[in-house]
Every structure is written in C-alpha cells, then in structure tokens.
C-alpha cells in the first residue's frame, strides 16, 4: 500500500517536472502558433510592406531580400499580405469552432438528456447530417447565406457541428449512467447541480483537446471555400482568397500558390499537434 502510494506520488511529481520537458514537435508548434497569433493581433509590427500598396514595376518578382516571399501580379508584397490575412483566417477558424461547439453542445446535451420526444428527433437529424460530407454541408450553407466572411464562419461551423454533437452526446450518456452521478442523485442533489458539477465538466473533458484540433481543421475548410470563390472575395488577403487570386499566374509565379498554402499547413499542423498533446495529457491524468 505505502509502496504503491509513493510510486504514484513519484509519478505525479515526474508529470509535473515534464511540463517543462514537452516534446520538440509540440514546442515548435507552440512557437508557430504564437507567431500567427501575434500576426493576427498586430500585423503592422510583423509585416514589411503595406498589404494593399501596388507597385507595378516590381510585379511578379520572385522571393528576394526586398520582397521576402515575392510579389503578386500588381506588385503587392506576398509576405505582408499573408501576415495581414492571418487575422481573418484565424478568426474564421476560431469563429467556426465556436459556432460548431456551441451548437454541438446544445444539440449533444439535448440528445442525451432531454425527454424522448425531443431527444429522438435531434438524434435522427444528427445522423442524417452526418451522412453528408462536411464540405457539402458547408457549401449548402454558403449557398443559402451568400459568400462573405461571416457566412463562411457559420457554414464551416454548422458543417462540422454534427460530428461534435454526436461526441458530446456519447460522452454525456456515459457520464449520466456513471456511479458518481447516481451517488449524487442518492445524496439528494437537484438535477441542475448534478449537471453543473458532474455531467457537464466530465462530458467536456475530452473536448478541450478537440477545440485546438478543430481550429486547424476549420482554417483548412474555410480556405478551401474561399479558394472556390465561395468565401472572402480576392482583394482581401485572406489565405484562401490569396490562393484563388494566385492560381491565374501559377505557371510563372509558383510562390503565389506555395506560400499561402504553407501558411495554412503550418497553422493546421501546429494547432493539431497542440490539440493532440493536450488530449494525451488529459487522458494520462484520468488513467494514472
């Protein structure tokens, strides 16, 4: 007994120390994510040129010391445009995730906890929505709302919501039938206290990591829609719009497609990596 307790205490202290010993990939991901977050907050501080100043004399110059990532067909600095586009791309990703999680939370809890006549229809609708590919669902909503940054945000959010809703529902059902929830009923707690103290936090536990994972994915979805011309329109430096604008010159200016694509990949990978890491650690503390 004492042996096992000291063993666990040692494991706990090792876990604490290892906070400062995160894997290299995670450390790099955090740096990349911080860079983009900084770019989103103060683009002026990180950019070298104005994103909108045209300079026809130096149009379509390849990457060089003057223009780090080259220029586009009317001579705008690509690096600065990517930096200035970060805010919109990240906000769409974050916003889409917020829309997805909010609607998924309401639907998921309702499907798990509401009386049958509410829960059953919700459950069926979620199943039907899950049968459609995410992109198709998002396209449907863009078609309904018209192309704009806001509609992009809602479309991607609603498109990814059914998957999260099913996950929340499954978690809630599991927690609802757990011994500690029954014990709380037996103690005489009212239903809303049990929901607040036990069901919501325990059902949400695995979703903390999903949030980080989802931001990366949402950025990819949103850029994809913009690239198809269904999101933010080209004068804006949003990353998907950059890709869409550059595709006309792809044969002479490869950098116009590669660098915005790299930015999207970096954001998606770094947030996914961070999300995975959080997920592993949360599970680790649950099964210590």
């Amino acid at each position: 007994m004492t042996a096992s307790v000291t063993g666990q205490a040692r494991a706990a202290s090792e876990r604490q120390r290892s906070i400062f010993k995160v894997p290299l990939s995670v450390a790099l991901s955090v740096l990349v994510a911080l860079f983009f977050v900084a770019a989103a907050i103060t683009p002026a501080a990180l950019s070298t040129h104005s994103p909108f100043d045209t300079d026809l004399l130096s149009s379509l110059t390849p990457p060089a010391s003057d223009h780090l990532l080259g220029t586009d067909d009317i001579g705008r600095d690509l690096y600065s445009r990517i930096i200035w586009g970060t805010r919109q791309s990240l906000l769409i990703g974050l916003g889409a995730m917020a829309v997805a999680l909010t609607s998924a939370t309401v639907l998921g809890f309702a499907a798990a906890l509401a009386p049958r006549w509410i829960a059953e229809p919700i459950d069926r609708i979620l199943e039907i929505l899950l049968a459609f590919p995410t992109l198709l669902l998002a396209l449907l909503f863009v078609a309904l709302l018209g192309p704009s940054a806001t509609s992009l945000l809602f479309s991607v959010g609603i498109g990814t919501a059914p998957g999260y809703a099913r996950l929340i529902r499954a978690q809630t059902l599991k927690v609802k039938s757990s011994g500690y929830v029954e014990a709380a009923w037996a103690l005489g707690h009212p239903g809303h206290t049990i929901f607040r103290q036990h069901i919501a936090p325990n059902a949400f536990r695995p979703l903390v990591a999903l949030f980080a994972l989802g931001i990366g994915q949402s950025v990819v979805w949103a850029s994809g829609l913009s690239f198809l011309g269904l999101g933010v329109a080209p004068p804006s430096p949003e990353w998907g719009a950059l890709l869409e604008a550059g595709k006309a010159n792809i044969t002479v200016a490869w950098w116009l497609e590669i660098f915005p694509g790299v930015a999207i990949v970096f954001v998606a990978l770094s947030f996914t990596q961070i999300g995975r890491y959080i997920q592993d650690r949360l599970e680790g503390t649950l099964h210590q």
């Binding site: 500690y180 936090p201 325990n202």
Partner: peptide
C-alpha cells in the same frame, strides 16, 4: 437516506 455501493471508486467523480 444514504447509500454505499460495492465499488466506491466508480461512485466518486474522478475530478
């Protein structure tokens, strides 16, 4: 009225 179960661990919130 209180209750004590066979498996106490599952009757405690893991958090």
């Amino acid at each position: 009225i209180s209750v004590v179960y066979q498996d106490p661990l599952s009757s405690f919130d893991p958090r």
